[in-house]
């Protein structure tokens, strides 16, 4: 898509967001509502302005959102999967898993190196957060044992 098209969509998106925020803020009493209303309307106005400006004289040059769509998709999907697994598997199990799986998914083919790096890294994280700081981390279903 061209920069012009992107900026138009971005402008309209923010205009919508601003209007929604302003509309939501009408429900807040007194000065608590005025301030977000002003902000919401400003955002809507600026968004529209951006959309119009791009329509008028936006650069019709392509501007790719991602350089390598495949790798971005893999990273985002595995990243989201990791966050979803943290409360289920527990922090350490899920983290160890992502540290091994993600490099492989991105095309890294040195299993021993990957495993060693992941193990070393997890050891450091464990030392700092559990050993030194004693911070409680999600334990997942292991805690029942």
């Amino acid at each position: 898509m061209t920069a012009r098209g992107q900026d138009m969509i971005l402008g309209l998106l923010f205009a919508g967001l601003g209007l929604a925020a302003a509309w939501q803020a009408t429900g807040y009493r007194g000065a608590s509502g005025t301030y977000p209303q002003v902000l919401g309307l400003s955002l809507a106005g600026l968004g529209l302005l951006l959309a119009l400006k791009s329509l008028w004289r936006g650069a019709r040059v392509p501007r790719p959102l991602v350089d390598h769509p495949g790798r971005v998709a893999v990273t985002v999907a595995i990243g989201a999967g990791y966050l979803a697994l943290v409360p289920v598997l527990g922090f350490y199990a899920a983290s160890a898993l992502v540290a091994v799986v993600l490099p492989v998914a991105l095309g890294f083919r040195r299993p021993l190196y990957t495993l060693l790096a992941a193990a070393g890294f997890m050891a450091v994280v464990w030392l700092v957060f559990t050993g030194l700081l004693a911070k409680p981390l999600p334990t997942g279903f292991w805690s029942g044992w």
Binding site: L83, V86, S95, A99, T114, A117, A118
Partner: peptide, 16 residues
């Protein structure tokens, strides 16, 4: 590629 998951893990633990 090894750094990618490590930074993700650090972000997660730091935020949590």
């Amino acid at each position: 590629v090894l750094m990618v998951p490590m930074i993700l893990v650090l972000m997660a633990v730091g935020v949590y």
